[in-house]
Design a protein around this nucleic acid. Structure first.
Length: 276
DNA sequence: AATAGTGCCAACCGCTGGAAA
DNA sequence: CTTTCCAGCGGTTGGCACTAT
């Protein structure tokens, strides 16, 4: 029953790869292409398990790897994607040509986490640090409505829209305060620092309530596929959409929504994301 | 110069979903 | 339908390199 046994793990090498092993793997993949990792080690004359070969190739030997330092643009893109996707490193890597999930994961843990902490942003929640620790202060800066992240309530609706903005001035605690959380100074007046020319606005909200009411009246439907930004998918059931998503179609047949508010600036297109 | 501490990253480990038998 | 395996993923770790004392 089931498949034949996997590779013999007792007779496989572990640890760092040698130059000779690398050369063998590269030569084999150049000749036969990627795939069938299970049989590759034997065919290539390597004493490694297929899993190890795959990892070595994907993370180190692939010719299209970029290598080298991450640019500031890549940094910001990773931060933005992480705020949307969480620790989905493979999805994030899919948006960064030449970068691997492992590389991004390492870079996140060693650089970006610290970078965000220095900005006073929690790297897990992407919220301002003192909001995480003190709910009392959560909305204390909302006098400036676009400051992030401050839930706003749509008029005449019962649901909440959360706007996460990276483009607005970000509240940065003093550096010494960040590193001394016990210090009472941490709750003192923070300074404001403006983020450079990056519009990273993110809006997460259910479909606008008034539109819902309107659509109920007019008999229009909400297309879930479009709400995920996949209006060109064959699963899309609102083929008569004319003016595109985030607007009500003029013939009233369907309404598409701009999921995450990203379609207009093209920063994140879920159609090109790999879906597991 | 020697040792301890820290940062970085390649590689491994364990889990999961899907496919094969 | 059940069992087994594979490919892929995210979390973790071991070891090297560099810096501080």
């Amino acid at each position: 029953m089931g498949r034949s046994p996997c590779c013999e793990k007792a007779h496989t090498n572990k640890g760092a790869w040698t130059k000779e092993e690398d050369d063998r793997l590269i030569a084999y993949i150049k000749a036969h292409g990627e795939g069938c990792w299970r049989s590759l080690p034997k065919a290539a004359g390597l004493l490694r398990c297929g899993k190890s070969c795959r990892l070595r190739w994907i993370n180190y030997l692939r010719p299209d790897l970029k290598r080298g330092n991450f640019t500031e643009e890549e940094d910001e893109l990773i931060i933005k994607l992480h705020s949307l996707l969480g620790n989905k490193w493979s999805l994030i890597a899919g948006r960064l040509p030449g970068r691997t999930d492992n590389e991004i994961k390492n870079y996140w843990n060693t650089h970006i986490k610290r970078k965000l902490l220095n900005r006073g942003i929690d790297p897990i929640t992407h919220r301002i640090l003192n909001e995480v620790t003190s709910h009392h202060h959560e909305y204390s800066h909302s006098s400036s409505p676009s400051h992030s992240p401050s839930p706003t309530t749509t008029p005449n609706s019962t649901t909440t829209t959360t706007t996460i903005s990276f483009s607005a001035p970000i509240t940065i605690p003093k550096k010494e305060d960040v590193f001394d959380m016990k210090d009472d100074n941490f709750n003192q007046e923070p300074r404001l620092e403006k983020c450079p020319d990056l519009n990273l606005d993110l809006r997460i909200s259910p479909p606008y309530q008034q539109q819902n009411h309107e659509s109920l009246k007019t008999g229009t439907r909400i297309c879930f596929t479009c709400s995920l930004g996949m209006e060109s998918s064959q699963d899309c059931n609102c083929s008569q959409t004319i003016v595109g998503c985030s607007t009500t179609s003029s013939n009233g047949n369907s309404i598409c929504y701009d999921f995450l508010g990203l379609k207009n600036n093209g920063a994140l297109d879920y159609r090109s994301l790999e879906m597991k």
